[in-house]
């Protein structure tokens, strides 16, 4: 049973990719994901400036998932070089650098800087609010996404570009198509859903200090499955299916919807770093039981 997967020119020994924003802040933590069976890893999103993020509570575990408003805390792209050099030194599997902009032009600037450090791919986090356009997310607007992707493609050379889309868009497949037409090499879907809110009824206060937060984990899996299904109908580039995947069967399900690879985020909360090994094993057990020798025959079979 081979879990080998190819995506945007990258060869992965497992389709499982650590999602951005989950433990991916340093080379040693990414290495630990590799040791536990990840096929590739994504660094936490890097932006134009150092940011401390929102005040705690920023991440809360709910019964069926997680709500978070970390607030894109990061060291700023000018301070990330040494960490990326360290990653290149100790990691054997491919690594993806996720970037976000506060303004449209930030993506190009940051991508040019990051591309020079030669990551295996660059993820474009377009789910953050656009400060130029009344705070609504770039990812809601196909034209803006298209502009960001083509801007970045102009400066990134041969490094694959993977926009990560938000399920808040009511036409996520059209946005994916716009990204593909602009030169995107793959699509990552989905980012957190919502936003949602949790109130402590004893103090009548929203529990997140930022009040609202993105939802992830098992409660959003059906949304992720639907989004990947819709995108698969519209585009030919491969999809990294992300959102509430915590078991081998979840992974199989999102691949049947059309994903080539599978993003792993909240599962790290449920099972620790061992989540990768656990899901790999469960996928192989399912494949054996159903006579699949590799993942190619599985992809998108829920269509048609």
């Amino acid at each position: 049973m081979s879990l080998q997967t190819n995506i945007a020119g990258l060869k992965l020994k497992s389709p499982l990719i650590l999602a951005s924003g989950v433990v991916g802040i340093s080379a040693p933590l990414l290495k630990r994901c590799e040791e536990n069976g990840a096929g590739a890893v994504t660094l936490k999103s890097i932006g134009p400036n150092p940011r401390a993020g929102h005040k705690n509570p920023t991440v809360l575990a709910l019964q069926y998932g997680i709500i978070n408003a970390v607030g894109l805390s990061n060291v700023g792209y000018k301070n990330i070089d040494s960490e990326i050099e360290e990653i290149k030194k100790i990691l054997k599997i491919p690594f993806i650098v996720s970037i976000f902009g506060e303004k449209i032009k930030d993506y190009k600037t940051i991508a040019a800087h990051i591309a020079a450090l030669k990551p295996n791919a660059i993820e474009l986090n377009v789910s953050c609010p656009n400060v130029e356009k009344f705070g609504s997310a770039f990812g809601l607007d196909a034209e803006l996404c298209s502009k960001i992707v083509s801007d970045v493609k102009n400066v990134s050379g041969s490094i694959p570009i993977i926009p990560k889309l938000t399920p808040q868009a009511n036409n996520i497949a059209d946005i994916a198509k716009a990204c593909e037409d602009a030169g995107a090499d793959a699509i990552c879907a989905i980012n957190t859903a919502g936003p949602g809110m949790v109130i402590d009824i004893e103090t009548a206060k929203p529990m997140l200090t930022f009040k609202k937060g993105g939802l992830s984990g098992p409660m959003i899996k059906p949304i992720a499955i639907r989004c990947v299904y819709d995108i698969y109908e519209k585009v030919r580039i491969p999809i990294i299916g992300t959102g509430g995947i915590v078991s081998g069967k979840d992974a199989i399900e999102i691949m049947q919807a059309g994903a080539s690879c599978v993003g792993i985020g909240s599962a790290v909360y449920y099972n620790g770093f061992e989540a990768f090994g656990k899901i790999n094993k469960e996928m192989q057990a399912w494949m054996k039981e159903h006579n699949y020798k590799n993942l190619d025959k599985l992809r998108g079979i829920a269509h048609g």
Binding site: L29, K44, N56, V59, A61, I66, N68, V70, Y269
Partner: peptide, 10 residues
């Protein structure tokens, strides 16, 4: 410490 549940990496 931010999340306290092993997910943010901080």
């Amino acid at each position: 410490v931010k999340c306290a549940i092993g997910i943010c990496g901080q």
